[in-house]
Design a protein around this nucleic acid. Structure first.
Length: 555
DNA sequence: ATTCGCTGCCAC
DNA sequence: AAACGTGGCAGCGAAT
């Protein structure tokens, strides 16, 4: 059963049951939406799928009242998927835009959401989606109308079942993202501070360099015979040139090969300066409140369907600070990481029987090694090169080997690349569709100038990778949805087990210690289920590396 | 004072 | 060495 939800922005709102063509019966008005949703979520014999304009707006207030829901249909996210499928990636996809297109009106731009810092509530933009509907429009009616239209459009696609699954897991992801933001990653500011102090020295006044960094700046300057700011590539290039070393850049990899006494302290400086600027005390102050880091996830924020985050850099937490992620007393962190996901996805989508057999093993690369004279590392480099579109350097001979051993898999990638080079669209397994090329790209390629070949090949690499990365992302969403459902069914008497972190192909759960084993089993079963739901019966397996730890650094 | 392109490095 | 996909973000330095 589908029920449309129209919040009034003041805790109340309207609810109306939907059918494929619109509203069924009369809308129910309530002064307390949380109560109305909770009753229907718990009550009926049939599970509810909540239909709303924007999960990131509608759901947090419910969570704030302790109300979790199982399923939803996020009209904005589904609209974006449908537009992309029609070759219209990036057009406004909020409810107001979808409604305006239905009515042949001028399409308003989507509302812009700013980043909210760690401790803050969601930005209190008053019912942002209403702003994109013309004043006086019945929002519930508009929601029902757009939903009916989306239902119809999905039904008209070549594979509506797959696309409906994509819409369902994208929406489930939005639920999980809101829940994760509310819950937060358990983060020990004390451990983080100790870790910083041990490496950088005592916390300096705001804006000043910590003692260890200041000392390294002195060392670098002394070795180069002049004052330099090591944060300035321009100054470093000049100083090295003056010292007789014409370096092409100041990247660590380049500097490592330079024989000069400034190099060692400079590399140390770069490493520690990164820690200080990206995840130092300022980051801690801005993003960690009451023992939790609460990143602002952007579901579908990456073209491939991966998530992005707004502020806080949650998807780039460096290994160096993962020691600060510590379970609460009596709780455990359960980390579940899909191993070798992208080559397994390639095996599944290309229906390459030989690669699929290799993907039936725990270590896919080891099974490929035979074709490379037993060299697992070369097998791995070759397969990654094929998926990323690398052609030069050491990759060429490896690709030739792969092409012979796994012609269907490599052929699949080649076709995706050719489609991209022609300016065409490619899709994931469930139907997520890449953006069309820009007008600038079309001009460059059509004119056939010196940049034409490079531009075409560049887009070929993108579409080649898109098919695999986007399918891997949706496999991960199916996994997350299954784990989320399983956790919701567990005994919550010691506290509710929850997903607290999601990073492309990895989930971290924070659970009462008693439930850790059950959670690990749940994750493994969910990975099997994700493979079956996506690809049916197949020799391809999706093994998870699962660890139960107190500290994420030990995962 | 703010904006923006560039460099460089972190994650997958 | 760099090659090679998707991103976020800090700092620099020039342009506005």
């Amino acid at each position: 059963m589908r029920i449309a939800v129209d919040p009034d922005g003041e805790g109340g709102g309207r609810l109306a049951e939907l059918d494929p063509s619109g509203v069924r019966g009369a809308a129910a008005e309530t002064g307390d939406l949380a109560v109305g949703v909770a009753e229907r979520e718990a009550g009926g014999a049939e599970a509810v799928r909540w239909v709303w304009a924007d999960t990131s707006e509608a759901y947090p207030p419910l969570l704030g009242r302790g109300v979790q829901v199982g399923r939803c249909h996020d009209v904005g996210l589904v609209e974006a998927l449908l537009l992309a499928h029609a070759g219209r990636f990036g057009e406004p996809h909020a409810l107001g835009a979808a409604w305006a297109r239905l009515h042949g009106r001028e399409v308003p731009p989507d509302p812009v959401r700013r980043a909210g810092r760690g401790g803050e509530e969601q930005p209190a933009l008053f019912a942002a989606e209403s702003g994109t509907l013309p004043p006086g429009t019945d929002r519930l009616a508009a929601l029902a109308e757009v939903h009916a239209d989306q239902w119809r459009r999905i039904g008209g696609l070549p594979d509506p079942g797959r696309f409906a699954l994509l819409c369902a897991v994208e929406s489930a992801g939005a639920l999980a993202a809101a829940e994760m933001r509310r819950t937060g990653i358990p983060w020990s500011a004390a451990v983080h501070d100790r870790l910083l102090t041990a490496q950088l020295g005592a916390r300096p006044p705001a804006g000043a360099r910590p003692a260890v960094l200041a000392g390294l700046v002195e060392e670098v300057s002394a070795a180069l015979g002049r004052e330099v700011n090591p944060d300035s590539p321009a100054q470093l290039l000049k100083a090295f040139a003056a010292a007789g070393h014409d370096v092409s850049s100041t990247r660590s990899e380049v500097l490592r090969a330079v024989d000069h006494p400034a190099v060692r302290p400079l590399l140390r400086y770069k490493e520690l300066a990164r820690l200080h600027s990206a995840h130092g005390w300022a980051w801690l102050d801005a993003w960690v409140r009451s023992g939790r880091f609460r990143p602002d996830y952007v579901v579908g924020g990456v073209v491939s369907g991966r998530w992005a985050t707004r502020g806080g850099g949650a998807l780039q937490i460096p290994k160096a600070v993962r020691g600060a992620i510590v379970a609460d007393p009596g709780w455990r962190l359960v980390s579940a990481d899909a191993g070798q996901l992208e080559p397994r996805i390639l095996a599944a989508v290309s229906r390459d029987a030989a690669l699929a057999r290799a993907a039936g093993a725990d270590d896919l690369y080891a099974r490929l090694a035979g074709a490379f004279g037993g060299d697992r590392q070369r097998a791995k480099i070759g397969l990654l090169a094929a998926m990323y579109g690398q052609t030069g350097g050491d990759a060429a001979p490896l690709l030739a080997v792969l092409r012979r051993a796994y012609p269907r898999a490599i052929g699949f990638l080649d076709r995706a690349a050719e489609e991209g080079e022609r300016g065409g669209l490619v899709r994931s397994w469930l139907g997520r569709t890449c953006p069309p090329p820009s007008p600038g790209w079309r001009n460059t390629v059509a004119e056939g100038g010196p940049d034409a070949g490079g531009a075409a090949r560049g887009r070929g690499r993108f579409t080649r990778n898109f098919t695999v990365q986007a399918t891997a992302a949706e496999w991960a969403l199916v996994l997350m949805a299954a784990v989320r459902r399983g956790l919701a069914g567990m005994d919550g008497s010691d506290g509710r087990p929850e997903i607290v972190f999601f990073q492309h192909d990895e989930l971290v759960m924070h659970v009462p210690a008693r439930l850790a084993g059950e959670t690990a089993d749940l994750a493994r079963r969910a990975a099997d289920e994700a493979g079956r739901v996506m690809f049916g019966e197949s020799p391809v397996r999706f093994p998870l590396d699962v660890s139960v730890v107190d500290c994420y650094a030990d995962a």
